[in-house]
Design a protein around this nucleic acid. Structure first.
Length: 936
DNA sequence: ATAGGGTTAG
């Protein structure tokens, strides 16, 4: 094939750029990789290219020539005056006048001068000779769309009595030019279905581009089909448009196919191909195609578009060697003064870490625009160079070329404000963007939301968020991510729900943030808050953690590799739900992804199995861990703690000390909890003492809480109160509430009253506390006080958290709310329980109506007990699982005395192990006994 | 008369 550059590219480019390539006749590209033969073209292309021939030898210019001269110097208004003045001049015939109008219309389009364009339109429309001139109307349609006002194009188009294909094409291209992809598509449909016109090689490229704009690959394929049927696929423009469209839609393979089968290719085809690879992250392919384009048999010379496509690839890959080579090519082609090229070069050097080289280019270049400044500012910003960034920003504003900052500037500067969490700078920048109306840009607004959140100013973040007119998934994500990362995980979850209610679908970012929130929430008591939250918000289906886990699965099955943090978060979420099956599944995934060796992930896995009730599995994982640190030992000890296996916890703790590992504050929380749940009071007190004397660890509130709880449960109220007095910190509500429940167990009415007062004074707006207080008095039959407490609760509008239990069957989590009559299989479930109740009554079960806090008749109380959610969950589990399978139930509140008693009997009569996790610990029921030894 | 590829951020 002859190495002839297609005339198209230059003809197309020249009117825009105005400069032609210079060639000194030498083979200037040889040193890179261009074959010599390609050379002759540059000069050849040069000829006959000027827009309109000007006849300078003749002092008498024709009207079109004169208009053209004025247009070239930018005097469009003058040209219009000239046209109008000579409207009666017979010296100019009609065709000359029409041509002159054409020239002016074109110039209006190029220079976006809609004022003059509109006046000229009026002139044409009101004249009898020209109003129906199809050439002129086409030009007016084009002019309006080039001025960014395709609506005016449409108005004129609709007024036309008859429309030819030129006019249709002009309007379609006007829509695509203004990125009104949908309008372009529907106009095309109209053209095909309503008119006799057949779309041609001018129509299709626009339509194909619109498909790309809509990112609608299906539509694009359909148009591709039309192109094939009409044999328009042979057209270079159509082929090029297809390459670009497939690239935009993410189907590079299709783009390559089109490229390979094209009967004729030009520079644009190559550029589009490189661009397609670039957009889809195939950097090596970009370089390969670029090289092939230069040295292959077609041997084309790159133009500005090629260079500004390939340079960002070098930048993205930080491949400065390639970048330098392209730079050499740029110089040899004489394109180093092209603004876009020099900008791309600067950006490339900056991104490759050669900031001073970039700066040198920047200084040398006196032709700068916003992009130039932004690229440099971005360079300093990425380096975290606060001074350099702000210095440039200031210089930019003082620059006498009056280049104004834009949205990208803001986006570049914002990250450096976060370097030192500079809230002040963020606020200042925000003020600036408000004044310049940049906050209407979605990206800018979202960046401010996350920036404020990162600086710890959630309220400002929310302020920006709620001020948004249209909230997209990204806006929600910015706020959700901010809350998740900045210590308000519950708010993150709340927002997640709100987003779903507003009809938006969460994406991967939302889910990651949610997972992060779940990880932070691990410290909350077994997800109790989350469950309560979900139910208070009327979430009837599975709670969102469940959904997050489902989405995590999708993420995995879509081949998206989660980071360690995501894995850990998911384990955290499993722990909260006690979703053993799911936890196992994710454990398998982590194994396959070789993430289990990670010391943190290993830790989460141990924690997950323990919190999902499978302490033996935790121990196995723990034993196999190659690398164990203090944290690994601590989660293992704490795991035994929540299972009430104090002895094992103590063994581990002693072993840990023998290995000379240093227990820290967290380890002591674990061991104290273990002693507390295992009823090992003396041991616990001993460790509490050791912790201070031997290890020099100052006990925190959490340690005191454990010990006070431990003493209270053992009925040693004097010791407990003594410790409360000795505490350096003020006791919190947790301490009072644990004491209060101990008072209930031991019937300590007087102390209970005092403790209740303290608790309600400290946390007057927490429903749980009122429930605790009323439980105490209800147990003693003091209904008067119960009624008063309940009344007070009602008066301040508090409602008790709904009791809720859940069980996993077949990988799905089923929830049961107390006295839930809306259950899908309510009939069967209740029947199962009735039968069980008969059976266990035969072996000694007597309903413990003391657990019912309402004033009801005895029979009604018994009916209430039957509705407790854990009983429903167990009945469901028995109904749905084969004989002998262990049932694992979770509950958001503490298990009641009657249920605890009943489940002991059930475990005996159905001969199954039943594991219940309440909001404090695990209960393993087997053969009529519970692992907690009725001490909880 | 009407057409395809292109720099900064995400």
């Amino acid at each position: 094939m002859a190495l002839v550059a297609p005339p198209f590219s230059c003809r197309h480019r020249l009117p825009i750029h105005g400069t032609a390539h210079r060639s000194n006749g030498r083979c200037f590209l040889k040193s890179i990789f261009i074959p010599q033969a390609s050379l002759s073209l540059t000069t050849q292309n040069h000829q006959g290219l000027s827009l309109t021939p000007t006849n300078t030898s003749n002092s008498e210019l024709s009207l079109p020539q004169e208009i053209n001269k004025l247009c070239e110097s930018g005097n469009l208004a003058e040209a219009l005056v000239l046209l109008q003045r000579d409207s009666d001049n017979v010296a100019f015939d009609l065709s000359q006048r029409a041509e002159a109008m054409s020239v002016l219309l074109q110039a209006c389009g190029h220079r976006k001068d809609i004022e003059v364009g509109r006046k000229l339109h009026e002139v044409v429309a009101t004249s009898t000779q020209f109003s129906n001139n199809p050439v002129l109307t086409t030009r007016i349609i084009t002019m309006y769309s080039m001025c960014g006002s395709p609506w005016d194009s449409r108005t004129l188009f609709d007024q036309l009595q008859t429309k030819n294909l030129y006019q249709w094409n002009s309007l379609v291209s006007g829509y695509t030019r203004n990125e009104l992809w949908y309008d372009a598509m529907s106009l095309f449909c109209e053209l095909v279905t309503v008119t006799e016109h057949k779309p041609d090689n001018f129509t299709l490229p626009c339509v194909i581009k619109a498909c790309g704009g809509l990112l609608d690959m299906g539509l694009g394929q359909a148009v591709h089909g039309i192109a094939v049927k009409m044999s328009l696929i042979l057209d270079v423009f159509v082929g090029n448009a297809l390459i670009a469209m497939y690239g935009k839609c993410g189907f590079v393979k299709e783009a390559v196919k089109v490229f390979e089968y094209m009967p004729e290719r030009n520079l644009v085809s190559w550029n589009s191909m490189i661009c397609g690879f670039s957009e889809n992250g195939f950097s090596q392919e970009c370089f390969d195609v670029f090289r092939e384009m230069l040295v292959g048999e077609e041997g084309l010379i790159p133009d500005v578009a090629t260079l500004v496509t390939i340079l960002p690839v070098c930048a993205g890959e930080e491949n400065v060697e390639m970048g330098k080579m392209v730079h050499g090519l740029v110089v040899k082609l004489g394109l180093d003064h092209e603004l876009m090229v020099s900008n791309a070069l600067m950006d490339m050097y900056a991104k490759c870490g050669f900031l001073s080289k970039a700066h040198a280019l920047f200084e040398k270049n006196d032709n700068k625009n916003v992009v130039s400044w932004n690229s440099m500012i971005g360079g300093y910003s990425r380096e975290g160079n606060v001074g350099g960034t702000f210095n440039l920003l200031q210089k930019m504003q003082m620059d006498n070329e009056k280049i104004k900052a834009n949205e990208v500037t803001i986006l570049n500067v914002l990250p450096v404000c976060l370097e030192k969490s500079e809230l002040l700078n963020v606020k200042e920048l925000h003020g600036y963007s408000l004044r310049h109306r940049f906050q209407y840009d979605e990206l800018v607004a979202n960046s401010f939301i996350s920036a404020y959140a990162k600086c710890g100013s959630l309220s400002s973040a929310e302020h920006v968020f709620y001020g948004l007119e249209a909230k997209t998934v990204s806006s929600w994500n910015a706020l959700i991510g901010g809350c998740a990362q900045n210590g308000d995980p519950l708010k993150a979850l709340h927002l997640f729900l709100q987003m779903r209610y507003s009809g938006l679908n969460p994406d991967w970012f939302s889910i990651s943030s949610l997972l992060l929130a779940c990880a932070h929430l691990k410290s909350l008591q077994n997800g109790k808050e989350i469950q309560g939250f979900a139910y208070r918000n009327g979430l009837e289906t599975d709670p969102f953690i469940d959904e997050a886990l489902n989405l995590f699965r999708q993420m995995v099955s879509n081949g998206i590799q989660p980071y360690e943090i995501a894995i850990m978060s998911v384990f955290g979420a499993c722990s909260q739900l006690s979703a053993l099956q799911l936890g196992k599944e994710i454990h398998c995934f982590a194994l396959k992804a070789h993430l289990t060796e990670d010391i943190f992930v290993g830790c989460s896995i141990i924690d997950m199995y323990a919190k999902c009730g499978s302490i033996e599995q935790s121990q196995r994982i723990f034993d196999r861990l190659k690398e164990k640190d203090e944290a690994s030992w601590t989660v293992m000890i704490a795991g035994y703690g929540i299972h009430g296996r104090g002895k094992e916890a103590i063994e581990l703790f002693e072993k840990m000390k023998r290995l000379r590992l240093k227990p820290d504050g967290f380890t002591f929380i674990g061991i104290l909890m273990a002693c507390c749940h295992g009823g090992l009071v003396e041991e616990g007190l001993n460790y509490f003492d050791q912790m201070q004397t031997l290890h020099g660890i100052e006990p925190q509130l959490a340690h005191y809480s454990c010990v006070v709880d431990m003493l209270g449960r053992a009925g040693r109220f004097n010791d407990a109160l003594k410790l409360v007095d000795e505490m350096p910190e003020k006791p919190d509500a947790g301490i009072w509430s644990s004491l209060l429940s101990s008072c209930r167990i031991y019937g300590e009415l007087d102390l209970g009253k005092k403790v209740a007062e303290k608790l309600l004074a400290l946390e007057p707006d927490k429903a749980e506390n009122y429930v605790l207080v009323s439980n105490l008095f209800a147990k003693l039959g003091n209904w008067d006080i119960v009624r008063r407490v309940r009344g007070r609760m009602k008066a301040i509008g508090l409602r008790k958290d709904v009791g809720c239990s859940w069980i996993t069957v077949g990988g799905k989590i089923y929830h049961f709310v107390v006295s839930d009559m809306m259950l899908p299989e309510a009939e069967e479930i209740h029947k199962v329980w009735r039968r069980l109740e008969e059976k266990i009554s035969g072996v000694g079960y007597i309903p413990d109506t003391g657990s019912v806090l309402h004033e009801l008749k005895e029979e009604e109380k018994i009916e209430m007990l039957r509705g407790h959610s854990e009983k429903l969950a167990i009945s469901f589990g028995l109904l749905k699982t084969p004989k002998g399978v262990t049932l694992r139930i979770c509950k958001n509140l503490r298990i009641c005395r009657d249920c605890h008693n009943a489940i002991k009997f059930v475990s005996k009569v159905v001969d199954r192990e039943i594991i219940v996790r309440d909001n404090k610990r695990f209960h393993h029921f087997r053969d009529g006994f519970c692992s907690c030894g009725d001490y909880w």
